[in-house]
Nucleic acid binder design. Sequence first.
DNA 1: GTCTATAAGGGGATAGAC
DNA 2: GTCTATCCCCTTATAGAC
Lengths: 183, 183
Amino acid sequence: MVVHTRTPRGQGRPRLLEAAGELFAERGVSGTSLQSIADRLGVTKAAIYHQFASKDEIVIAVAEPVIAHLAELADAAASTTPQAGRAVVIAGLVDLATAQRGTAAIMRRDPSMSQILNNHEPYMVQIARIDAVLLGPDPSPERRVALAFAGGGIAVGGELAGLEPATLRTALIAAMTRALETP
Amino acid sequence: MVVHTRTPRGQGRPRLLEAAGELFAERGVSGTSLQSIADRLGVTKAAIYHQFASKDEIVIAVAEPVIAHLAELADAAASTTPQAGRAVVIAGLVDLATAQRGTAAIMRRDPSMSQILNNHEPYMVQIARIDAVLLGPDPSPERRVALAFAGGGIAVGGELAGLEPATLRTALIAAMTRALETP
DNA sequence: GTCTATAAGGGGATAGAC
DNA sequence: GTCTATCCCCTTATAGAC
């Protein structure tokens, strides 16, 4: 499905997305100007426009690896039992939430980011798949609340600083599991 | 050509804060211009500056009722047993999170809002008091994670649409209580 | 790929009339 | 209290040189 992507000289784009992701996490999307991204990279705005046509395109590109990870989790869950699938998804979501400076978390928290992603079909598709795995068939209202609660929980909990990564991971998986143990 | 009809909008300050709070919740603080607030009220930007010296001042003013509510909860908790205090705080936080358009939720989610509030002592003081009630003495790392998780959980869960308010409230209290049942 | 330069517009904020 | 008018800076985005 990928058309071109002939960019073996991988300095520009990945570095740009990393810087953008960090700034989005710190200040939010609306609070991050292209100028500030350029400054962090030591280049000018025009250099950024050479690689991306618009700010929204950068936002989507930052989210893309996360969306790909969500797709993998949903695939993995689909090839096993419901219970095992839920465990896989929970562990995977925790890993996503604790990875690299909260890029995943900001996708759920930042209003500007949400607005863009809610109009980005690939994201919505994967979110729906993940939700279906975690909810199961015919979910009760209580279960829906528990899912929303758990979603917000990892987004914020994943950014907790000052803990051993392994401790954080274990505690978050426990918290997620407990949150979703609703009838 | 109608130049301008009488603006039958409500009285200045409360009306302004209501509009600002709604817009902050929808688009985030950075995503909300003073112009957009003025537009929603049917006035000009200059009219807003008659009541507030800066945008930050509006943000703080929007947060103030929530901060006052937090103070009340912490006070109530201080005048009873630890267990009863925790229950009071949990119920109060759920009420805050589900009340009026997610003003409370945005305080925890929006990066720009957080940045302003983290430098606003009255907010930090009340948050510390609430956290102390929920954590208890000598909290384990797991308990700290559970608290962060629960904080994110209500912020997101409180905005869930399409449920009976009473159902949402009960389910959120249950979710919060369960999340904080960590040793 | 990166630069300089600039367009075109919006942002926060202020002055002063009514 | 609200208006008009304005200031100045920053924003997104484009054009074209190297």
